[in-house]
Design a protein around this nucleic acid. Structure first.
Lengths: 117, 117
DNA sequence: AACATATATATGTTTTATCGTATATTTAAA
DNA sequence: TTTAAATATACGATAAAACATATATATGTT
């Protein structure tokens, strides 16, 4: 999966999308309602930003029943993976990224995190 | 020198600025007229993009006579330096970055590259 | 079949970024 | 003290991004 540097940074240049990517990088896989809750944004907002990330090949989606899970595209070039990983790691404790993870962990009725999934 | 991840990626989200940064990362230090020639853009365009990079602390400038040289801010946090370096390296041979360096090396009357500077 | 939940898309509006052009500033040289 | 070269800034026009809201689609449940 190839990607243009300019397209890549265009996709990162929005706080909501950056927060989604950092959270996905840290959590591996999240559905839309989890991201919506974690970032405290409207569902259409999250959905549209995810669509843009999907269209630029940064994330992949997969449906499980009524939920659609997003994850970082594991076939991205090494340098892109590296940038995402470095960014997520260096900013994990900073605003707003730390709060996003906190909010995610406080989410009630989170799908797929029960004992039987 | 601290920097906000969102501000950082905002600054990268423009092809002209990205090309400037990649070229600076590779060449160390360049004046405005060199960047203008290498990227083949108007002087005010380059100047305004450099101003934005300067205002977001990504680059530093230094005057030498009538020329003003820009360079990547060496006091940026490690993760930012790492992202810039990784990006420059991985994209060096790709469009438009390879052509920019080529054009720079073909520039006639380049300042400060003579034998006595 | 009717309804509820999760997600996606469409539309109109507002905000933000970019660009071309003109002009100002600074320095060096004549 | 003009003049030229390098650079920066200002201004108006255009384009792009983001947003709120409404609605559509797909799945699961009763």
């Amino acid at each position: 999966m190839s990607i243009d540097a300019n397209d890549f940074y265009q996709a990162l240049a929005n706080e909501s999308r950056l927060r989604c990517l950092v959270l996905l990088q840290r959590q591996g896989e999240l559905c839309v309602c989890e991201l919506t809750h974690a970032l405290n944004l409207s569902q259409p907002m999250i959905s549209r930003h995810l669509a843009l990330l999907r269209e630029s090949n940064l994330v992949l989606d997969q449906r499980f029943g009524q939920w659609i899970y997003y994850r970082i595209n594991e076939t991205l070039p090494d340098w892109v993976r590296s940038v995402l990983q470095t960014t997520a790691q260096a900013n994990a404790t900073k605003t707003p990224f730390a709060a996003d993870l906190k909010a995610l962990n406080k989410m009630p009725n989170r799908p797929s995190t029960g004992c039987c999934t």
